[in-house]
Nucleic acid binder design. Structure first.
Lengths: 242, 242
DNA sequence: AATTTCAGTGAACAGTTGTTGACAAACATT
DNA sequence: AATGTTTGTCAACAACTGTTCACTGAAATT
């Protein structure tokens, strides 16, 4: 048992064993999965993808069944247990992926080195692209944020809080709104993130190919953010009683 | 068939038939359900209550089953169909109830004839009382708002939009923030309502009897609203190009 | 008083669910 | 080359699901 863990660690360190075990079929046409761990990871992520795909079809995660997922993933139900103890554990994996997506959004936003004019509109554009690109993760996060099982709900809440914290630290580092206290800055970021996620729900629920409706939603989103930041600018910290 | 509908209508007009059909048991101890329609309504609402009760125990509506609900309500599964075609229809009934709750919240808020000082804090207090009083409706609305089945999701969206509209009309009538255009006022109300519902999720998810945490959440909620209204005050409508 | 209407019951159905244990074959380790 | 490890499969299970049909008894109508 301990040996196994050790060898897995080795696997992760040695990147390429130099494979090429002579197989009959050609290398390029049939992709020939190399190591065992790789294959395990592959079916694992096909399970995760199956869950997301089903949710994309309108189902909510909480209503998904184990068998349903394995069916969609193209494996036999019992295979599920080789990867997750139960549905909750799969859900938590999805939460982690969603958190990673959020974090990468933040990384992308950091590149945008602040030319202060119309920064909101441009951030929203970035956000929308992200939204459409990883719409399934956002649907999951925004959808189960206050709907799903308690375990998953609180896991999502943690990830979102982390995101809020990181965002507020970013703003501080950029010396954005320097007159705000740390607590107020975090409150602001919480408000912004909630608004973001609500907008995500709205945008992702849209019937496809309705450009005017989409534009309306986006404009509304931008207006809301403008109003929030306008409030942040004229915010006065209450003075502590002497 | 038409007769039936007619007699039902009569039932609703004639308030008291003068009942007192001589029954063995006393009037006060055993409540003796009077008319048939009343009894039907009673089990109907016991089905609705059963759904809400189960959700209170951490389940999400989408994951509830028909049998589960009838079991909780204390009737046999087949009785369900006397009241609802399927779970979606029951869900829609819950949405209606939730909408009524929202509307009554608005009615309550109207009584508070604006002494502008600290109006936000007092509104939040009203809101919190409402939240705790009808916590199950709010859990349902806030939870399934972007989680549940598409039918229910869009029904909730309608109710919430209606609420937003009504709220914006109220503000206009009170001559509150008269420099805002109607569209902006609605945008503002949408933002406020989203913030309200997010706060509802947070507050209702709290572990019970943690007064300091509760106070933190409420303070944060108040701060967010303050910031929003601060933004609304200093909002300048863009001038249309001449 | 006779008749109709109907909310709630009971038994039964076909289908699906989560979970178990034994097994095969590809892989990894010795 | 021999041995152990492990991913995925198969068959089977008890439990539960939504839905059907015929039925009962009391309330409502005639």
């Amino acid at each position: 048992m301990r040996y196994t863990r050790y060898t897995r660690f080795i696997k992760e360190v040695i990147v390429d064993k130099g494979g090429g075990k002579s197989s009959a079929s050609g290398r390029s046409s049939a992709p020939e999965l190399a190591t065992r761990d790789e294959r395990k990871l592959r079916t694992r992520s096909s399970l995760l993808d199956a869950a997301l795909t089903l949710m994309q079809q309108g189902r909510s995660f909480t209503s998904l069944g184990l068998r349903e997922i394995t069916r969609e993933a193209g494996v036999v139900p019992t295979s599920f247990y080789r990867h997750f103890r139960d549905m909750d554990e799969l859900g938590l994996a999805l939460v982690d992926d969603g958190g990673a997506t959020l974090r990468s959004l933040l990384r992308e936003a950091r590149k945008e080195s602040a030319p202060v004019s119309d920064i909101i509109r441009r951030s929203v554009t970035i956000y929308k692209e992200f939204l459409l690109d990883r719409h399934m993760h956002f649907m999951f996060i925004a959808g189960e944020r206050s709907g799903g099982s308690p375990v998953i709900r609180s896991a999502i809440r943690n990830q979102v809080n982390l995101f809020v914290l990181e965002m507020s630290q970013d703003l501080r580092r950029l010396n954005f709104l320097p007159h705000l206290s740390t607590a107020t800055l975090q409150m602001l970021c919480g408000l912004v993130v909630n608004t973001m996620l609500n907008a995500a729900s709205d945008i992702l629920d849209m019937p496809p190919d309705e450009p005017t409706l989409e534009q309306e939603l986006l404009d509304n989103f931008v207006k809301q953010l403008r109003l929030i930041f306008l409030g942040a600018i004229s915010w006065k910290e209450p003075v502590a009683k002497p």
